[in-house]
């Protein structure tokens, strides 16, 4: 078993916190993990990505080869498309539909959504609206994790435990709202995949 994931977003959007939960969950499932992150200049509002590899056997490269990713998990729609050359023939693209516009030449959102909808395996989800419905606006990243959860090859329970571990310090309420967010994202993916 091997899952190669490209996490994508804009510096400051918190893709590394998603990676942290997947990492803990994978370790819980006795899987090996390698995760290459971007630190430094790009973190200032630039395009950022993280290569995350999970396997039940030894992982060699910290980077995923082109055309080999099983999943692109993006918290921003244009950023999800940036890494398509890495997506494998059977890979899924899961992305938040809400743009982060900090450049003057940001393309028309409709055409971005169209590009995504043309992909054979995609989940396009308005995680921000869903988070507002759940009355926890800051949980959109966890909703995204939930939406990607069917493709991670990690038991769902382990992801829940990962949330408990990562958010445990912040109290029961924060843990609960994030677990609900995870479930909401999961449900959306199951209904729309």
């Amino acid at each position: 078993m091997k899952t190669d994931i490209i996490l994508a977003g804009v510096g400051g959007q918190g893709i590394l916190s998603i990676a942290a939960i997947i990492g803990v969950a994978a370790m819980d499932s006795n899987l090996q993990v390698k995760q290459a992150e971007v630190h430094g200049m790009s973190q200032r509002g630039g395009a950022v990505q993280s290569h995350m590899r999970i396997s039940d056997s030894t992982i060699a490269s910290d980077l995923i080869p082109l055309g080999k990713a099983d999943l692109i998990l993006s918290v921003e729609p244009m950023e999800s498309l940036r890494y398509l050359p890495w997506l494998g023939p059977e890979g899924w693209l899961v992305t938040n539909s809400v743009p982060f516009v900090n450049i003057p030449d940001y393309p028309a959102l409709d055409s971005i959504h169209d590009e995504i909808r043309h992909l054979p395996r995609h989940i396009l989800i308005d995680a921000d609206a869903m988070a507002r419905d759940l009355k926890s606006a800051r949980s959109s990243n966890i909703i995204m994790l939930g939406a990607a959860s069917p493709f991670l090859n990690i038991p769902y329970q382990c992801l829940e435990n990962g949330i408990k571990k990562i958010f445990g310090k912040k109290g029961e309420k924060v843990v609960e709202s994030n677990i609900s967010a995870l479930a909401a994202g999961r449900q959306f993916a199951e209904q729309n995949k």
Binding site: G11, G45, A47
Partner: peptide
């Protein structure tokens, strides 16, 4: 042989870092 996935669509704009 390297087999890249789908070509990055032309509409994807560069997003350089910026001052906060």
């Amino acid at each position: 042989q390297v087999r890249p996935g789908i070509k990055k669509p032309d509409l994807v704009a560069n997003r350089p870092p910026e001052l906060c």
